[in-house]
């Protein structure tokens, strides 16, 4: 597997399922993203605050802070309020995800085309640092 480009957008994934993680990493790598994982909601929140990723993907059923609470906490913090969040869960919880401020809800299992398209759309909708730099220099 080739290592991602140094400037590849970072996708932060909060999920405990090793098989799901493995597939997500493979498909996102192939789509040109860098992938980082967090084992629980607290770790994900810390990581996102330290360096906001291009996108967060979270399962609802994760320890310490669940995925919906994680989503709310990200929205409340000005440093992470603009980070798009995909709630990607085994639970059928689209309305609850929307209420928590998620940008999108996808139900498991993972289908590459659907998952990668959602990530691409949300990342593309965000101004990247490079684009911001370009705007500033004009």
């Amino acid at each position: 597997m080739q290592s991602p480009r140094p400037d590849a957008p970072v996708i932060l994934i909060a999920d405990r399922d090793q098989t799901v993680r493995e597939l997500q990493r493979f498909f996102l790598d192939r789509a040109g993203y860098a992938v980082e994982f967090a084992d629980d909601g607290e770790a994900a929140l810390e990581r996102a605050r330290a360096a906001p990723p291009a996108l967060v993907v979270t399962e609802i059923l994760i320890p310490k802070i669940d995925g919906l609470a994680l989503c709310r906490r990200l929205r409340e913090d000005p440093a992470t309020a603009g980070v798009p969040v995909i709630v990607f869960s085994i639970l059928s919880a689209a309305p609850r995800a929307a209420e928590a401020g998620a940008s999108a809800f996808l139900r498991k299992p993972l289908v590459e085309s659907v998952f990668v398209a959602a990530v691409n759309d949300l990342v593309a909708a965000q101004p990247t640092e490079a684009m911001e730099e370009q705007c500033r220099s004009r």
Partner: peptide
């Protein structure tokens, strides 16, 4: 099972 459950197939 883990693999087939994780992936939409």
């Amino acid at each position: 099972t883990a693999l087939l459950t994780a992936y939409g197939t």
